[in-house]
Design a protein around this nucleic acid. Structure first.
Length: 601
RNA sequence: GGCUUCAUAGCUCAACUGGAUAGAGCAACUGCCUUCUAAGCAGUAGGUUUCUGGUUCGAGUCCAGAUGAAGUCACCA
């Protein structure tokens, strides 16, 4: 039995015997004692002073005394104000340790689908997409780890007016340009998307000026608004979309060609960042879905039809608005296809939870989507969850693809690899590495730094990225934790050569354990609970932070005590085992974040 | 304007869900490599947790208001 549970149950008994109060053991909260006080676990007595009619200090004394006399594992207590600090018997630490290293979770019967990435095929991935991809991948690994069956899917936005914009610009200015070794397919298409925007804006400016000349009473905004609708560029793009929907062979061929370039480019980026999907959905296949759900809603009286033929749902009772589901011309809108897609997915994979990793700008949309699916009585509706994450902003504000103010994912990755290379070579610890191993190391370190940087922040929070300050390799970083791991790996190799056993059997009665070693045991034992918490909160940051704290504590230990140089054989063995499990926790944590560990660096 | 979210050291982030003297990293300054990898360790300095009230044994955390920032409120996606 877990020592905290045991203690909670004994405290509950104390209340029963001393005061005749019955308290659920589960209601008793314990917390790690703060470093500046003596003790391992703290019980706060304030909440119970009223019921027991005792002063806080007195109550702490009574319970502390009870625990000393009635349990075998509490060796000491100290009361400070309303805080009862308990010190555990040193010999129970080995027991706590050996019982706390079961890192396996029981299988769960529930299925979870995670949608993430979901790129548009008119531009390459940028830093914001990286946050999305890392989060999606990580949360999928975490949910798998705690026992769910997980299916990772991607929904590619491969159609629509924005795609036609790059197609049109390519048709006009492309001169048959093809992707090359210096220009990946997704970057090529993105180039023409930016080109369209420039072209379009010039036209708008020109037309707006003409409008103001002809009609000086127009404001600048009004003139631009008019011009935006009249510019040939946008009219031609709309025309192209119409042709695409009709299946015009020439347009469809161009669309296929350009999308295939983009997919090759995306595939290369996905490979570099180490994410993949169990299934990829394309909006060109799903954008017509959902109309039957609208019909179903009408029949059930959940939706209503206006006189112009458009279909709506009234969500005012839920504090939201009226929401359009079908245009008056019978065509669907964004949410319509999301309804249909969700239903189709349930056919593919009858999930209990459906997680959308999508930016926080779409919170309203997903609130509406969930409500509608609930109204339609879909079995998976309750489990729909929008894993909403904050934008990655630049010092100047939001990134905008059209204006080219984005941090490109491929560029950033290259920069990170280059930094990793420079730093590694500067430190000169690469004796015995093959060229291939070096390349691998640079990649592992670069991705570790980048992923940790983006994942250590709580998902819901927006974050700031300053391109002028490169991502750190020192301090609270992925590299710091990888380095800690590599140092332990080195020790373990040597320990293996010395035939030091990793078994606890010799250590049964070992109790000569330093406070910092107790802290490490606590960190190891807490790992599983942190993973559970991360799964519940959909927050990889919880695991990242715990890994950092564990590594930090280990480094203090590493610099204070000798491990392989320890003369006492049991002590030495204990420290090797301790190191082994710290490494295990770090490696498992990082695997859940999608980060690899180097055995040497 | 309505709704939602956010505001913590110069900067980037934590704070075990209401607990003790609010912690880390970066940047600055001091030390520590003939000892298991110094991408490390130890230390100094840095705070009215935006502001004003309230709730209670106790508030960065809960409530109300103010100020500031972001998002959203389309027959766009």
């Amino acid at each position: 039995m877990n020592i905290e549970l045991q203690l909670a149950s004994d405290i509950s008994n104390a209340f029963q015997l001393l005061f005749g109060l019955s308290l659920e053991a589960s209601a008793i909260q314990l917390q790690p004692t703060r470093k500046e006080f003596e003790g391992n676990l703290t019980f706060i007595v304030f909440p119970y002073v009223k019921q027991t009619h005792k002063k806080p200090e007195e109550l702490g004394e009574l319970i502390g005394n009870y625990l000393i006399n009635h349990t075998s594992y509490v060796s000491k207590y100290q009361v400070i104000k309303g805080f009862l600090n308990l010190t555990l018997q040193t010999k129970s630490w080995i027991q706590i340790f050996s019982e706390g290293i079961d890192f396996k979770f029981a299988k769960r019967s529930e299925k979870v689908m995670v949608e993430y990435s979901s790129p548009n095929t008119n531009k390459p991935l940028h830093l914001g997409h990286l946050r999305n991809n890392f989060l999606g991948w990580s949360i999928s690994q975490i949910l798998k780890e705690v026992g769910y069956e997980v299916m990772m899917v991607n929904l590619v936005n491969d159609r629509g007016i924005h795609i036609c914009k790059s197609m049109l610009a390519y048709q006009k200015f492309g001169n048959g340009e093809k992707p090359s070794s210096t220009l990946k397919g997704d970057h090529l298409v993105g180039k023409y998307y930016v080109m369209f925007d420039k072209w379009y804006k010039e036209q708008v400016k020109e037309i707006a000026a003409k409008h103001r000349q002809e009609n000086p009473s127009l404001s600048e905004e009004q003139a631009e608004e008019l011009a935006e609708k009249e510019a040939p560029a946008i009219l031609q793009a709309q025309e192209m979309l119409r042709k695409w929907e009709e299946g015009d062979p020439e347009i469809v061929a161009l669309w296929k060609q350009m999308n295939s370039w983009v997919y090759e480019g995306f595939e290369a980026t996905y490979r570099k960042i180490g994410v993949h999907f169990d299934k990829i959905y394309y909006e060109s296949d799903t954008y017509l879905l959902g109309k039957d759900l609208v019909q179903e809603g009408l029949e059930k009286g959940i939706f209503y039809r206006k006189s112009d033929g458009s279909v709506w749902v009234d969500l005012t009772a839920e504090g939201l608005d009226h929401k359009l589901l079908l245009r008056s011309d019978g065509t669907s809108v964004y949410i319509t296809q999301d309804l249909g897609t969700a239903d189709m997915r349930y056919q593919d994979f009858p999930m209990n939870k459906l997680i959308y990793v999508v930016g926080n700008e779409q919170e309203y949309h997903f609130k509406v989507l969930k409500l509608i699916l609930q109204k339609l009585g879909r079995p998976y509706a309750e489990g729909l969850y929008h894993l909403s994450y904050g934008m990655v902003e630049l010092p100047e504000g939001k990134m905008k693809s059209r204006e080219g103010t984005v941090v490109d994912a491929d560029d950033l990755i290259e920069e990170m690899i280059e930094t990793a290379r420079e730093r590694t070579l500067a430190l000169g610890k690469i004796e015995g590495f093959t060229e291939e191993e070096l390349q691998k190391l640079y990649h592992v370190l670069a991705m570790g730094a980048l992923k940790y940087y983006l994942l250590r922040v709580e998902p819901s929070k927006k974050m700031l990225f300053n391109p002028k300050e490169s991502i750190d390799f020192q301090g609270n970083t992925g590299v710091y934790i990888q380095y800690t791991y590599a140092k332990i790996a080195s020790i373990l190799r040597k320990a293996k050569a010395e035939n030091i056993s990793l078994s606890f059997t010799e250590l049964q009665d070992f109790s000569d354990i330093e406070p910092i070693e107790q802290q490490l045991i606590s960190a190891i034992v807490r790992y599983k609970q942190k993973v559970e918490e991360a799964a519940q909160e959909y927050a990889p940051s919880i695991i990242a932070n715990h890994a950092y704290e564990t590594a930090k504590t280990y480094n203090t230990f590493y610099n204070t005590f000798s491990i392989l140089g320890e003369s006492h054989p049991l002590k030495k063995q204990f420290r090797v085992i301790l190191s082994y499990y710290v490494a295990e926790v770090l490696k498992r944590s990082f695997r859940l974040l999608g980060i690899e560990m180097p055995e040497r660096m």
